[in-house]
Amino acid sequence: MDPSELKKERIVRRAAQELRDGFYVNLGIGMPTLVANHIPPGMDVILQSENGVLGVGPYPEKGREDADLINAGKETITVLPGASFFSSADSFAMVRGGHVDLTILGGMEVDQEGNLANWMIPGKMVKGMGGAMDLVAGAKRVVVTMLHTSKDGTSKVLRKCALPLTGRKVVNTIITDLAVLEVTPRGLRLLERAPGVTVDEILQATEAELLVDEVVEMPV
């Protein structure tokens, strides 16, 4: 595995530790989707996909794909026993109505107030917000997974997001390749550091102000 894959693998493994037995969970497109590979054995977690599926299962075996059965990332999937299908309106009643226990999403920028930007770069990238704005507004807990810095080393954990927001004061926890951070009423708290990474290195790689007292090593 190359270094950037290793970093992502670490983030995904740590994000999986946010899952709890009995949770209904919506996983965002990309890295968050991979969290499904790390659901601890014996733990019941039901995955919701906002295009209208509860009970998302593994990807299909080769030759068993069904064009009518996809996830929100438009990937072919399967469903587990006890799954259900529903309309987009019902799907977002689940999301906005506070019935989804946890959503794990990717991020472009987060800031110390819990603001998240992950849908648009003005003049450059126009893909749209999809269901992300509804998810951050409605899920009981919002976890953001992302690399701590961009390729040139610029911090993506900021004092104030510069990109257009996906949601205001919506993030609970940020999991990066360097650290786990918690948004608290007093500010952004450094909870965990990645193995082999010092608190100083995290502070240097972070534009946001961090509250630092007890920092444990990320259990991955």
Binding site: F92, R96, M129, M133, D134, A137, G167, K169
Partner: peptide, 29 residues
């Protein structure tokens, strides 16, 4: 936003004149 889109269409079909949603608060939406 996807949920707002679904609900706006639902409202249009159901004769509802609009609705208040938490989605998009504090954003350009």
């Amino acid at each position: 936003p996807q949920g707002t889109l679904a609900e706006r269409i639902r409202a249009g079909g159901a004769g509802i004149g609009g609705f208040f949603t938490p989605t998009g608060v504090g954003t350009v939406v």
